[in-house]
Amino acid sequence: MISIRPILENKKQFLDLLLLADEQESMIDRYLERGDMFVLYDDDETKSACVVTIEDEGVYEIKNIATYPRFQQQGYGRKLIEYILEHYKDHCHTMLVGTGDSPLTIPFYESCGFVYSHRIPNFFTDNYDHPMYEDGKQLVDMIYLKKCIRHHSF
């Protein structure tokens, strides 16, 4: 039985899971306490976690989403994203997610309805204390994708 629960305190108990998606603890510290955290359980076993922050009025960002490797490719991440989009739909018009320029992650977000927004050149090389690699490729730029949850008027 799948359940998704907000985590209101002791968020660091899930650090091992968060580090799978953001491998430098000091970077996680920049958003963990100001973000809303949700954990997906299946039969009371932790499968996935997500941290969402408010970046601007009506603009939220998925800062971290991770699933334990042995549970990947089973739909848990997608289910967590669907939950997040539904949870924030009354407050949020645009959901952002930033990721490395990776053939592993970008197609996943695109399959969840996200589209390319913009890139931040040299984000990973400027902000991390060591080179980061995904699927054998060094991550340099941060690629932002966005999903419009509802239309907004100015």
Rank of each mutant, 00 (worst) to 15 (best):
N64F: 10
Y88H: 13
Y68P: 01
I81V: 14
H93S: 13
A66H: 07
N64W: 08
I62R: 05
I65M: 08
G77C: 03
N64S: 11
I81C: 04
D90G: 15
F71R: 01
R78E: 11
P69K: 01
K89P: 04
L80T: 12
H91I: 11
I81N: 02
Y88L: 13
I65H: 02
R78Q: 12
A66G: 06
G75T: 06
Q73T: 06
H87L: 05
L85W: 04
E86L: 12
G75L: 07
H87E: 14
L80M: 12
I84A: 08
D90E: 15
Y83Q: 01
Y68A: 06
Y68H: 11
H87C: 03
Y88F: 15
E86F: 10
I65C: 08
P69M: 10
G77Y: 02
Q72T: 05
H93N: 12
H87M: 05
F71H: 04
E82K: 04
L85Q: 13
Q73P: 00
Q72Y: 01
Q73D: 12
Q74M: 10
K79L: 12
R78W: 10
Q73I: 09
Q73H: 06
Y76V: 01
Q72D: 03
F71S: 00
Q73Y: 06
F71P: 00
F71V: 06
K63L: 10
Q73A: 11
G75V: 06
G75P: 03
I65A: 01
G75C: 05
Y76R: 00
Q74W: 03
Q73L: 14
E82S: 13
E82M: 12
P69T: 07
Y83K: 00
I81S: 04
H87D: 00
H91A: 15
E86C: 12
Y68I: 07
I84C: 09
Y68S: 01
Q72M: 01
R78C: 10
I65R: 02
F71L: 02
I84W: 01
H93G: 06
C92W: 05
I84V: 15
C92P: 04
A66T: 08
Y76C: 07
Y83N: 09
H91D: 15
G77K: 03
Q72P: 00
K63E: 15
Y76F: 13
Q74L: 12
Y83M: 03
N64V: 02
N64P: 02
Y88C: 11
E86S: 15
C92G: 11
G75N: 01
A66S: 11
R78A: 12
I84T: 07
Q73M: 08
Y83F: 15
K89C: 15
I62Y: 09
P69L: 13
E86I: 12
K89S: 15
G75S: 04
Q73S: 12
Y83A: 06
Y83E: 06
L85I: 11
H91S: 14
R78I: 09
Y68M: 05
G75W: 01
I81P: 00
K63H: 08
E82V: 00
D90M: 14
D90P: 12
G77D: 09
R70M: 13
P69R: 04
Y68Q: 03
K79G: 01
I81T: 06
Y83D: 08
I62L: 14
Y88W: 11
T67D: 03
K89N: 15
